[in-house]
Design a protein around this nucleic acid. Sequence first.
RNA 1: GUGAGAGUAGCUCAGAUGGUUAGAGCACUGGAUUGUGGAUCCAGGGGUCGGGGGUUCGAGUCCCCUCUUUCACCCCA
Length: 426
Amino acid sequence: MKIPPVKGTRDFYPPEMAVRNWIIDGWKKVSVRNGFEEYDGPIFELLKMFQIKSGDEIVEQLFSLRDRGGRDLALRPEITPTLARMVNQRINALSKPIKWFSVPRLFRAERPQKGRLREFFQWNIDIIGEDSPLADAEVIFTTVDYLREIGLTSKDIKVKISSRQLLADYLISLGIPEDKLESIYVILDKKNKLPPDTFEKILAEQIPDTSTVRKILDFMSVDSIPQLKDFVEEGSSAFLNIKCVLDNLDMMGVGDFCLYDPGIVRGLAYYTGIVFEVHDVAGELRAICGGGRYDNLLRDFGGPPVSATGMGMGDCVLEILLKERGLLEKQLPKTKIDYFVSCVDENYKDVTVEVTMKLRSAGFSANFSYKITKLSKQLKQASEQNAAKCIIIGDEFKNNKLAVKDMATGQQELVDYDEFLSDIKS
RNA sequence: GUGAGAGUAGCUCAGAUGGUUAGAGCACUGGAUUGUGGAUCCAGGGGUCGGGGGUUCGAGUCCCCUCUUUCACCCCA
């Protein structure tokens, strides 16, 4: 009976595993050099933990199960609730600001499509306990630092940055009641995804007053900070905040990746200030990553009111983009071994194993041939395994010598066995 | 959850109008080459034609159901 793989999952054969490791290693390396520490939590949590933030409708998008004690559990669809839980548990013991990162394996029971699967990896970085726009800027900088590291330029990708606080201030100044803001955010978030006239029509359905609609449309077409002066007060905290974030990003040297885009609002209610997404410039793919400030989340999870800002980046869209740009093939480290030990004489089979073991205990990676076959076949095997050197054990061993062949140059030399052993130890 | 396309070897795909034993390239294994790798040539293994049902003398081909997959919508934490 053949068992198929589960819908929306991936099998990582060695070539795919190499890609996954390379991506994740890059995430970790950049996190660490930007001063973040790694954490992780359990892969499943109480179902209700995910309902706090996102409500009951989220249950349909989760893989959930009931354990034998009748507890409702769910495979984690994100790690931020776990982070909030962990930080809350030790909030008094942790020195602030907390700069943590994680690369969790996540699960979402959605229908798979381009750039979206049911099981994936997501890089998360968060700074907790810091109000300063410098923290928002640093989250964005770290994100760009990684993307730049793997070869993407400001011609490939852009960070689109906006502010929920700024948007809320403006909408309220137009007389829109606070309890209507959420429903308008949902529409405004679609600005970059819909044709202009459709967007305008949907907005007009929510807001009866045409002059208000006009004003919102004007606000939504602003594409630089100075233009904002026509809409909000220059001294307002929201204005100063986003200006400061963008100025800091300039100062950090990634200004050419970043731009103000009021079309970034983002899905759920959780964000309170700066929000951002990274998109491919061509606009062919869904967002590469997204993030923002969420100052109420720890309090919502039963902790004290502690501010936070963070980012999440999935591996699926990123990998598609890297493949399209040919950036993977160029940079993937080739798997290789130091030595392949070949043998063409039945009498020296044991020597072959012995040599291999000595190489390994000296710290080299080494394989040997299980069968005494034609040398050409063993050399082919060595070459397929990307061996730097191939050792040949045969007649010459009668004189206590090995042939050592450099696979790149093809050059070969006879080496005294004892000398070889003392060489590899040094 | 809604809609559309696709499913033949490990991969990419041929296989008019239904008709003998389902093919090719690449990949894999072996040989040419009894101690010298990447090339070339030759040979070989590998298929429940996604699965089930139906129409027919006869189905990879036509019909229905189902599964998987791709893409879009919903959603996007």
